[in-house]
Design a protein around this nucleic acid. Structure first.
Length: 505
RNA sequence: GCCGCAUUCGUCUAGAGGCCCAGGACACCGCCCUCUCAAGGCGGAGAUCACCGGUUCGAAUCCGGUAUGCGGUACCA
C-alpha cells in the first residue's frame, strides 16, 4: 500500500504546537514508510483565514525541517504534486461536483431551517434531556415545499443524511471504536447557506481525492470520525486508516491553549529554542522509542518511529524538558552553525541597547566565534547570548559597586586586590596576553597574601564584566584584550574608592 | 445531558501474565569537579501502577463496573 499522509492546517492562527506535532508524526510516518507527506491548506473559513497566518504556518513547518512532498504554491514557487490544487478555496469545483452527486443520489438535501428554528429545536431538546440533533424538518421536502421556501428568499444549507446504525473502525492507536450514528447530531450541514463547503465535507472529499492512506490527527477528531467514514462511503471512496494522536495538554491537563500556554511555534523560535530541540521534544510527546536514549534528531526519529507505539493518554507540554533538550542540542551544534544562529539574537540585544542611547560595538561573526566555546554550555536558549557576552560590546560598562566587593572581603582588601591584579595583568600583557600567563601570577599573589583565589577572581570578574556569572575569567580577559581589561580595572578601582566611603582606615 | 476516549513517580514515559515490592529522562535534593555560572560525573528522594471486583498458581499487564479527567456534540477547523 502506498503511504500518503497529510497535514491540513487552517490558516486561522499562527503555527500551533499541536499542529506542528501532528505534522511531525505524519512526516515521520511518511518517511519511515517511504510514503508521501502532503500539505493542504484548509482555508474555507474565509472570515478567520489570512495570508499572514498561512505564511507563518508554512514558514514554521519549513523551519522545523518538515518538508512536504506535495503542497500549494508558496511565495512564487509553484505547487508541487499531482493532486493539486492544495488550497481548499481553489478546490471549490470538486466540492460542488461531489455535492451535486450526493444530492442527485439523495444522500444529501437542501435544508431551509432558519437559525431561529434550529435554536428553538435545541432548546426543546435540552429541556427534554435529549442530545442536540437536527430534527429532519427538511429531510423530505416536496418540490413544491422547496419552491415556496425559495420564494420566501430563504437561502438553504445542504445537509448530508447520516442515517441509522453503528459506525465501527479500528484506530491504529486506540483499537476498535464503535459509535452509534444517533450520537452524531443528525444530518450534517456540509454546505453553508452562502454556498461555501464545511470542514467535515471538504476534508473527506480531499482526503479521498488525494488518495490519503492514513489520517493521522489529534484525538479531538476521534468523535468526528464516524461522520467522515459515512461521507467516504457515500462518496464511494476507499476508507483510509485512522490514527488519533493524544492531545497536548496545558499543565492543568486541559487541551493546550493559547490562554494557558505558549502555543505558537514562532514564540519558541523567538526565544531561541532551536528546531532540533523542538522536534525532539514534540516527537517524545505521545511516543517513545522504547529504548533509553531520548535525544533524537529528525533522522533518528524517522529511523525509530512506529505509529503503533504512539500511546493513547494526553501529554502535558513540559517546558523544562524542552529547555534541557535545547541545551543538549545547542551543545551539539558546530561552531559555525551556532555562531550564525546566535548572532541575530546578540545583534537584536545590542541594537535595542543602542536605541536606548548606549554606546555599543557591533559584533562580527568572528567576534562571536572566538568566545563561543566559552558560552555554549551555558546557553539554555539562544536569546540568553546577550546576557552572557554583552560586556564585550558595550563601551561603557555599568558596574554595581556593591558587587565589586567579594562577600568575604572588605573595601580595603578589594582595593588592594584590584590594584595588585592590575599591575600583574599589565606585566603579563607586556609578554603575551594569554589565559595561562595571566592566571599563574594572580594565583601566586593570592598565595602570598593569604587570599582565596576565588575572591580575587570575583573582584576582577565584576570589574571587567559587571556580572557575577560569566564564562571562565581568564579566557574572558583574553577576549576583552589588554587595553580594555586594564581600563576597566582602573575604572573599578576608582569606583570602589569613590562610591564606597572607607569608614575607619 | 448524551456519545467517545483516557488514567504507571510533579512532568514525559518504559512496561504487551511471572524478568517489576515497577526501569529511564526532565525537574528536585546531596556529593564530586570547580575562579563564578553552567556543563559533566556519582548518589538520593519520588508511583500501594485511579478505585472496586473478577479470571489466573500468579496481574501494572486480561475482563467487568465505578470514579475522575479530557474530547466531541456549530452554517469553526
Amino acid at each position: 500500500m502506498t503511504v500518503r499522509v497529510r497535514i491540513a492546517p487552517s490558516p486561522t492562527g499562527p503555527l500551533h504546537i499541536g499542529t506542528a506535532r501532528t505534522a511531525l508524526f505524519n512526516y515521520l510516518f511518511a518517511r519511515r514508510n517511504g510514503g508521501s507527506f502532503i500539505l493542504r491548506l484548509e482555508d474555507t473559513d474565509v472570515a478567520r483565514s489570512s495570508i499572514e497566518y498561512e505564511r507563518d504556518i508554512l514558514d514554521g513547518l519549513h523551519w522545523l525541517g518538515l518538508e512536504w512532498d506535495e503542497g500549494p504554491e508558496v511565495a512564487g514557487l509553484p505547487a508541487r504534486g499531482p493532486y493539486g490544487p492544495y488550497r481548499q478555496m481553489q478546490r471549490l469545483d470538486s466540492y460542488r461536483e461531489a455535492v451535486e452527486r450526493l444530492l442527485r443520489e439523495d444522500k444529501a438535501y437542501y435544508c431551509y431551517c432558519t437559525p431561529e428554528e434550529l435554536a428553538a429545536d435545541r432548546l426543546a431538546q435540552e429541556a427534554a434531556h435529549q442530545p442536540p440533533h437536527y430534527v429532519g424538518r427538511c429531510a423530505h421536502l416536496t418540490p413544491e415545499e422547496r419552491r415556496s421556501r425559495e420564494a420566501e428568499g430563504r437561502k438553504p444549507v445542504i445537509r448530508f443524511r447520516i442515517g441509522e446504525g453503528v459506525v465501527e473502525f479500528d484506530d491504529v492507536v486506540r483499537g476498535h471504536i464503535a459509535i452509534d450514528t444517533s450520537a452524531l447530531g443528525g444530518d450534517l450541514v456540509i454546505v453553508r447557506s452562502d454556498g461555501t463547503p464545511l470542514y467535515h465535507f471538504t476534508v473527506t472529499v480531499d482526503d479521498a481525492a488525494m488518495a490519503i492512506s492514513h489520517i493521522i490527527r489529534g484525538e479531538d477528531h476521534l468523535s468526528n470520525t464516524p461522520k467522515h467514514i459515512l461521507l467516504f462511503k457515500a462518496l464511494g471512496a476507499e476508507l483510509p486508516k485512522f490514527a488519533h494522536l493524544p492531545l497536548i495538554l496545558n499543565p492543568d491537563r486541559t487541551k493546550m491553549s493559547k490562554r494557558k500556554s505558549q502555543t505558537a511555534i514562532d514564540d519558541y523560535r523567538e526565544e531561541g529554542f532551536i528546531r532540533e530541540a523542538l522536534v525532539n521534544h514534540l516527537g517524545l510527546l505521545g511516543w517513545a522509542s522504547g529504548g533509553e536514549e531520548e535525544v533524537f534528531g529528525l533522522d533518528e526519529l524517522v529511523e525509530r518511529f512506529e505509529l503503533e507505539r504512539v500511546h493513547a493518554g494526553g501529554a502535558v507540554f513540559d517546558r523544562e524538558r524542552l529547555e534541557w533538550l535545547n541545551g543538549q542540542w545547542i551543545r551539539r551544534l558546530s561552531d559555525d552553525d551556532l555562531v550564525s544562529r546566535a548572532l541575530p539574537y546578540l545583534m537584536g540585544d545590542l541594537e535595542a541597547r543602542r536605541e536606548r542611547g548606549e554606546a555599543v560595538r557591533i559584533p562580527t561573526e568572528d567576534d562571536l566565534r572566538v568566545l563561543l566555546p566559552l558560552v555554549r554550555e551555558r546557553l539554555p536558549v539562544l536569546s540568553s547570548i546577550g546576557a552572557m557576552v554583552d560586556f564585550l560590546f558595550v563601551e561603557e560598562l555599568q558596574v554595581n559597586p556593591a558587587l565589586l566587593v567579594p562577600k568575604r572581603w572588605d573595601v580595603a582588601t578589594t582595593l588592594e586586590g584590584l590594584t595588585e591584579a592590575r599591575r600583574l595583568i599589565a606585566e603579563a600583557g607586556d609578554v603575551s596576553f594569554e589565559a595561562d600567563e595571566l592566571e599563574a601570577p594572580l594565583r601566586a599573589l593570592c598565595e602570598a597574601r593569604g587570599w582565596k583565589a576565588g575572591d580575587l577572581f570575583m573582584a576582577i570578574r565584576v570589574a571587567v564584566t559587571g556580572r557575577t556569572a560569566t564564562p571562565p575569567l581568564f579566557d574572558t580577559l583574553v577576549c576583552l584584550g589588554p587595553a580594555r581589561t586594564l581600563e576597566r580595572l582602573d575604572t573599578a578601582r576608582a569606583l570602589v574608592e569613590e562610591t564606597v566611603p572607607l569608614p575607619h582606615d
